[in-house]
């Protein structure tokens, strides 16, 4: 299945026939494709979640969209404009702040306090002004980090660092935000809290989000649409619109009557 190519709205982000091949090296099979003929499209304001077995090239896909890795084939387009193709190899990470990326590791700068980490996107580009500070403070307040502005990352819990990393990307308003299992390494309780935080922040801003996870429950609870990736070479093998009304509460989603069927269908596809 090639989903979303016939979307009525022009997609904000489109990926067509994308492929990634790693060169043969010692101990590796010759030139294996991690990803091949992968196509998907995301419309403005949509929250798309991607699930797939581990090693399916989920991170590779996001890296290519974020322009930190070069595709071997196909193309990536933002608002109809080509960002990257198999031939064109000049990388432009984040595409001039059009694409935000929240990675598995928080990647906070350890020598900066929390507030300085959140203001970092302004410091590297544009400058820190009163509006920037106000925005950073509002976001810190929204995720319960008020009072910890002047702590260094090592003094904070994993969940707090994840929140800081999340709002560091939200604070400069990139039109597309990629998230690569951002809530991976935290305990279940914190994870639930972080997922709810993300949903409430998203409701305020309505960003376009591509969220990668291997947790099917998380994919259903967060997304407008769940895309299923196959094993390598990865391509999209399933598309599931999630009709659960918003605003959602993650813990409520799990007890909805339609949840088990949805879960089972996707589970079967992930394999």
């Amino acid at each position: 299945m090639t989903p979303a190519t016939s979307e009525p709205q022009t997609p904000l982000l489109a990926v067509r026939g994308l492929g990634k091949q790693f060169e043969a090296r010692d101990g590796r099979k010759s030139e294996s494709w991690v990803l091949r003929d992968l196509s998907m499209a995301v419309v403005d304001g949509e929250f798309v979640t991607l699930v797939g077995p581990s090693g399916a090239g989920k991170s590779t896909l996001l890296n290519m969209i974020a322009q930190v890795d070069t595709p071997s084939a196909g193309e990536i387009m933002l608002r109809g404009q080509t960002l990257a193709t198999g031939e064109h190899n000049k990388l432009n990470p984040g595409w001039n702040r059009q694409i935000g990326y929240v990675t598995q590791d928080d990647n906070l700068l350890p020598w900066r306090t929390l507030i300085d980490n959140v203001l970092f996107p302004f410091e590297v580009y544009g400058g820190v002004d009163a509006a920037a500070r106000e925005k950073a403070e509002a976001l810190m307040n929204a995720v319960g980090l008020t009072g910890f502005e002047h702590y260094h990352p090592h003094e904070l819990s994993g969940g707090m660092r994840k929140r800081a990393a999340l709002i560091r990307t939200l604070v400069y308003d990139p039109p597309v935000i990629l998230m690569d299992e951002p809530f991976g390494a935290v305990d279940a309780q914190t994870r639930l809290q972080l997922q709810n935080d993300l949903l409430s922040l998203w409701r305020l801003g309505r960003k376009t989000i591509v969220f990668v996870t291997h947790d099917i429950g998380e994919a259903i609870a967060l997304g407008d649409r769940v895309l299923v990736l196959s094993r390598a070479p990865a391509k999209i093998i399933g598309e599931h619109p999630i009709k659960i009304p918003r605003p959602r509460k993650i813990e409520d989603v799990f007890s909805l009557p339609e949840f088990p069927t949805l879960y089972a269908t996707i589970r079967a596809q992930v394999g």
Binding site: V68, P93, G94, L109, P121, E123, V124, Y125, R168
Partner: peptide
């Protein structure tokens, strides 16, 4: 860490900013 540099680049940091705000303190 190459990840820290990559993160700064995604946030829009150009070469001199990366050197001054990430590489130097590290």
């Amino acid at each position: 860490s190459p990840q820290l540099i990559r993160m700064a680049e995604i946030l829009g940091a150009r070469e001199t900013k990366v050197a001054r705000l990430v590489v130097w303190p590290a």
